[in-house]
Design a protein around this nucleic acid. Structure first.
Length: 351
DNA sequence: AACTCGTGGGG
DNA sequence: TCCCCAAGAGT
C-alpha cells in the first residue's frame, strides 16, 4: 500500500523538477510584465501552447501595452484573435484593459481577489497572474494540474463535476507552497504537459511516481475521470455571398452567441430566392466541439434582389445586425470566423 | 449544475 | 475518419 505525498515533499519534488526540466523560454516567460502574463493566460485557456505562440507575438507587436489595447478598436482586437476561437476571451480582454485604464489608473491590480473581478479572469487565471507577475502564493488549477493531482492522489470522478472540482481545488491549495510559488505553478503545468500526459504518461521518469497513488495501483488510465459523452446535434444554414464592385457584404454578429463580434456572411435558414438568381457552391460541414454546422454557400448573381437578401439577413427585426461591404484588403482588418475566411480566400483564388 | 463557447493536435 | 480535449470562464 503506497502512502500519498505529503504537501511539503510533493512541492519540493515539483520545484526541483522546475529547475531541472521546466519550460523557461516561452514568449511570455522571462518577464514579470503583468500585461504579457495576463494576455498569455487568456490565450492559453483551452488552447495549446503551439497554437498560441504566433497569436501572442502578433498581438504584443500591435498592442505592446495595456494602454494600447484599451485604445484599440473592437475590430482591431477581433482581427488579432481571428482563428484562435472562444472569441468572448478577446471581448473580455478588451473590456478589462479599459477597466484597468479607467478604474486602476493603468496599473494592473496585484491581489488575486481584485484580479478575479476583471472580465474573463476566473480563479485559476487570477492565481496564475498573481503568482507569475507578483510572486504571490496563489494556487492554480488548469487541465495539467487537475491531471497531476487526480493521479497523484487518486481523486476519482470527472473534474467538471462540482464535488470533484472542489476536491481538486482543496488539494491544489494544500499543496501549493508559500515560497517559490511561481516555480511550483509553472512546474505543475510542465509536468502535466510533458510527463503526466493524458495518454502514455512517462511514469518511470516522473519525480512524483514514488508516491503516486494511481501509478502504484496500476490505474493511471482511470484518472482523471472522463467527461460523459453526449450526442452532437447538427444545424443547417445558408450563407449568402454577395459581391459587388470587388466588395463582399458581411454582417457583424451580435456579442453573445457563436462567433460573437466577428464579421460573417449573412446567414439564413431558408432560401427564398428563385434558382436563377443564385449559384449553389460546394456545401461543407464545419465541426464545432458541441455541434456540426452544415453550410450551403449561395453565390448571388448580380441581378439578384438585394432587398430580399437584406430582409432575410435580419432574423430579428428588433436587433438588426450591422452590415457593411468590405474589399479584399479590408478583410485583413476585421475578425472573421475561420470557415468564412477559408471560403472567401478560396472564392477569390478561383476568380 | 448544466450548457455555451472555436479550433486544431494527436491517437 | 472519429473522438477526446487543450494553461477555463460566464451564464
Amino acid at each position: 500500500m503506497t502512502t500519498p505525498w505529503s504537501p511539503t515533499d510533493f512541492s519540493a519534488k515539483v520545484i526541483e523538477y522546475y529547475h531541472a526540466h521546466g519550460r523557461k523560454h516561452l514568449p511570455w516567460q522571462g518577464t514579470q510584465d503583468p500585461y504579457k502574463i495576463w494576455l498569455s493566460e487568456i490565450m492559453l485557456q483551452q488552447t495549446q501552447v503551439t497554437t498560441v505562440i504566433p497569436y501572442f507575438e502578433r498581438f504584443i507587436e500591435s498592442f505592446p501595452t495595456v494602454t494600447d489595447l484599451a485604445q484599440a478598436t473592437d475590430d482591431q482586437v477581433m482581427q488579432h484573435w481571428s482563428g484562435l476561437g472562444y472569441y468572448s476571451r478577446a471581448r473580455n480582454l478588451h473590456k478589462a484593459a479599459q477597466i484597468i485604464e479607467t478604474e486602476f489608473s493603468g496599473v494592473f491590480p496585484q491581489d488575486p481577489e481584485t484580479i478575479e473581478t476583471l472580465p474573463g479572469i476566473g480563479r485559476s487565471t487570477a492565481g496564475a497572474i498573481a503568482s507569475f507577475a507578483f510572486g504571490q502564493p496563489t494556487a492554480i488549477l488548469d487541465g495539467n494540474v487537475k491531471r497531476v493531482l487526480a493521479r497523484s492522489y487518486a481523486i476519482e470522478g470527472w473534474p467538471g463535476n462540482g464535488k470533484v472540482l472542489k476536491a481538486l481545488w482543496q488539494r491544489a491549495e494544500t499543496n501549493t507552497p508559500q515560497q517559490e510559488t511561481a516555480a511550483y505553478n509553472q512546474a505543475m503545468m510542465d509536468l502535466g504537459a510533458i510527463v503526466c500526459t493524458r495518454s502514455k504518461p512517462d511514469c518511470p521518469d516522473c519525480p512524483l511516481s514514488k508516491h503516486c497513488l494511481a501509478y502504484n495501483s496500476n490505474s493511471i488510465e482511470q484518472y482523471p475521470g472522463k467527461k460523459p459523452k453526449k450526442a452532437r446535434p447538427s444545424k443547417s444554414v445558408y450563407w449568402l455571398i454577395n459581391i459587388r464592385q470587388e466588395k463582399v457584404l458581411l454582417h457583424k454578429r451580435p456579442p453573445s452567441g457563436i462567433w460573437g463580434g466577428l464579421w460573417a456572411l449573412p446567414e439564413v435558414q431558408q432560401k427564398e430566392m428563385s434558382p436563377d438568381q443564385i449559384q449553389q457552391l460546394d456545401p461543407f460541414v464545419h465541426k464545432f466541439s458541441h455541434y456540426d454546422l452544415q453550410v450551403q454557400p449561395l453565390l448571388l448573381s448580380s441581378n439578384a434582389d438585394k432587398a430580399l437578401v437584406e430582409k432575410n439577413s435580419h432574423p430579428s427585426i428588433m436587433e438588426p445586425a450591422q452590415a457593411d461591404w468590405f474589399s479584399l484588403n479590408q478583410l485583413n482588418e476585421i475578425g472573421l470566423p475561420t470557415p468564412v475566411s477559408k471560403l472567401l480566400v478560396k472564392l477569390l483564388e478561383d476568380s
